[in-house]
Amino acid sequence: MNTLLWVVLPYVVLAIFVFGHLWRYRYDQFGWTTRSSELYERRLLRIGSPLFHVGILFVLLGHVAGLVVPQRWTQWLGVSETGYHWAAIVLGTLAGVCTLGGLALLIYRRRTVGPVFMATTRNDKLMYLLLAVTLLLGLGTTVISNVLGEYDYRRTVSPWFRSIFLLHPEGDLMAGAPPTFHLHVLAAFALFAVWPFTRLVHMLTAPLGYLTRPYIVYRSRAGAPGDPARARPPAADARRGF
């Protein structure tokens, strides 16, 4: 059972996540969008959306620090155990509350603003459910494990997480963790499994290239999609920047 949950399942989810994205990127460029609803309503979105997105970026950073960075590295850097602990509690709770608050506002908006609700698909509803459950369990885990009873996940959960990517899975490490961690991780598995098939894919095309590309983009007609048959030498130096 433990092997199934903490060794087989992670790889299944990972495979769905990676190959699902690859498949959709090839198959469904047209559907790959944020599906913004800002045109309908802006007042609530202006508060809720940045709150949620900035919050979840910090949550992501927190997970990287907690799961990917081994305890030895932070010790080597001179970060004491209590210092790390407090930083995790304060920042993690803050980011979690921001994210959940933003999400609550966005879900409230989605339900109460007529046009936004009309534009909500079943796919969206499932995604919102999984996202909310994962986030709630995640915040709950932070609070319970750090505040009520101290549990050092960096000795069990984090090595298990890294062991998966090192292709030497140690499921027993995770099996010994408290049930709150189990629930959070299982909810996250479900979220990652549906991720490539929801609007969440927009995260993977965050437009960081904008920072370096020239402002004006020229394209030759031959390069335009839908025009593959029109062979013509592409215009040399077809971009301009200033």
């Binding site: 095309t205 437009p207 290239g209 904008y210 590309r213 402002y215 004006i216 983009v217 020229y218 394209r219 030759s220 007609r221 335009a224 215009a235 077809a238």
Partner: peptide, 17 residues
Amino acid sequence: PSCVASCPSGALYKRSE
């Protein structure tokens, strides 16, 4: 075109022909 310059994804373009 300022719309082309504003597009973060580089999806808008001006045809060179």
